[in-house]
Design a protein around this nucleic acid. Sequence first.
DNA 1: GTAGGGTTAG
Length: 660
Amino acid sequence: MAALLNSPSHSAEVAIHLQTIASSLQSCSSLKQAKLFHACILRNNLPQHLYAKLLLFCTTSPTLSTDALDYATLVFQQLQQEPTIFMWNTIIRCYASSNTPSQAISFYGSMRNRGMKPNNYTFTFIIKACAADSCLFDLHGRAIHAQSIVFGIPNSDVHVYTSLVNMYASVAGGNVEAARSLFDRMQYRTAATWNAIIAGYARKENIKDAQELFDQMPDKDEQSWNVMVCGYTKIGKFDEAGRLFEGMPVRTLPSWNAMISAYVRASRPVEALALFREMQIVGMRPDEITVVSVLPACTQLGALESGEWIHLYVERNRFDRNISVCNAIIDMYSKSGCIDKATAVFKGMRKRSLVSWNTMISGLAIHGRGEEASQLFIEMESEGAVPDDITFVGLLNACAHAGLVERAWIYFENMHKVYGIQPKIEHYGCMVDILGRAHYLKEALKLINCMPFEPNSVILGSLLSACRTCNDFQFGEKILEKLVDLEPLNPGYYVLLSNMYASAGRWEEVIRVRNLMKNRGIEKKPGCCSIELDNTVHEFVVGDKTHQQTKQIYAKLDEISQKLDLAGYVPDTSVVLFDLDEEGKAQNLSVHSEKLAVAFGLLKTRLGKPIRVVKNLRVCRDCHSAIKFISQVYSREIVLRDCNRFHHFKDGSCSCNNFW
DNA sequence: GTAGGGTTAG
């Protein structure tokens, strides 16, 4: 090829090489090579049909990069002659499955303007584009269906009609009934047609019709089973899904991926990880999708060891070129307490998406690294990334966890003024939170009053914590009652209310609230802590005695308690809900899930290794103070994730500066 | 020389 580039263009010589070029293009594997061929075509003034080959190559490489797509577009736009229908189809097909399907429709528009008549291939591609985006469907879906009839596509065309069935059945604003009536009128159907309509029913959580068609389907293929598995997981019927999964003739990679992602979506990370391990035992190799699906399971659990293992797997298999994979790893590390590792992955990425920046900024925020988050935002802008509303949630959270009131105001005002993003209720929530923590209760109220939304439970919740910070019990009580009205089944508010009365010593009120809960059948969500050791997650609730090593754990607790006494720790009994005497309260505190998990961590890990604990609720005030002491007395770094943020305990203090 | 359906995303 290089020889062809340099040699003078003798038409005879070129003709000899034509065949070579055409066949090489098919096996050519990099964009760089494609460019070389392009140069070759230009240099030798080779015929137009080779451009078709070139386009085809650029757009069918196994992982279609945006670079290849951009390049193909350039080639297409610079064609000297009018493109053939094949070329139009090639470029449209490519955009239909890209992340900008609207471009496919634009190209179709130009094609029509230039008088080119679409064929059956064209329709499958533009229908696919409409199926990918509900806005596109709303704008063009039905019109394109009508045009297919105008241009003479018969309903015996199984490809076009399957695409149509899929479009109506899958798009958010479509309807399965329209898809069904097309399906019923089709002369020929393939497995793809059946799967499309069954998936449509399953997506709409109409498992009955899905199952009925599945039972009628003549030749089921592997995908048919996957569709049903997904359908059952979607409505929470994991037993049924599991039975299908176990019983299907062939379990393909998507089958495993479907089950794993379903468990993760249902917040059942333990089962997701178990399946992930099982698939490797049976010799199924995880791909990028598996990894993106399973990583949030590690994130949910704070299961750092499993997460690290997956990171290693990603590097070995070169999945780290995939932006989504990296984003999931960054999120896993930052939510598992390793913000520095998250930063390292972020820095190592060759290309980043908006999600990458947002994930990193939110990660820094939950670790209280407000300055670094702000710095990253500057870097983000200098690299030309455009922030969205989620970026600002991250930035405001960063200010909240670091107590940066002034900076928060600037972001809040600029988001509309400079970036044209209307603040949503979550942004107001962040601001109320920030103002409240800084004791600006009046300003917080003022902001709520001029907000264009009705205050929801999040806003009221932030206001409530502001009342606690400012010790305004009367106002706090009012807000709480409103919250209990707003969400009468949320146990958290009753507990808060009860706590508030308890700390004021108003025990009759405490009993009244607790009876209210009882009468309404509401149970307090039990606080639960988990700690991962040797790839196993151990869970503890208050006063837990179910662990195999309970005896040792309680002995360790005794030892801790003695050492803490000597160090000057005094239990903060104001946090106890019940009307116990002081000794009883201290007893209750000493077996909180946080302390059990930390005791177990001290027992089972060697000196110098940080102890990582995850709590499902907010960390208790007394445990927070006790763990500070433990970090000093035992010279141990303890990283605790609660439902809001991270606490890094070291040498007797915590990274949150007592803000949480 | 192009086609249809299933699995991911803060």
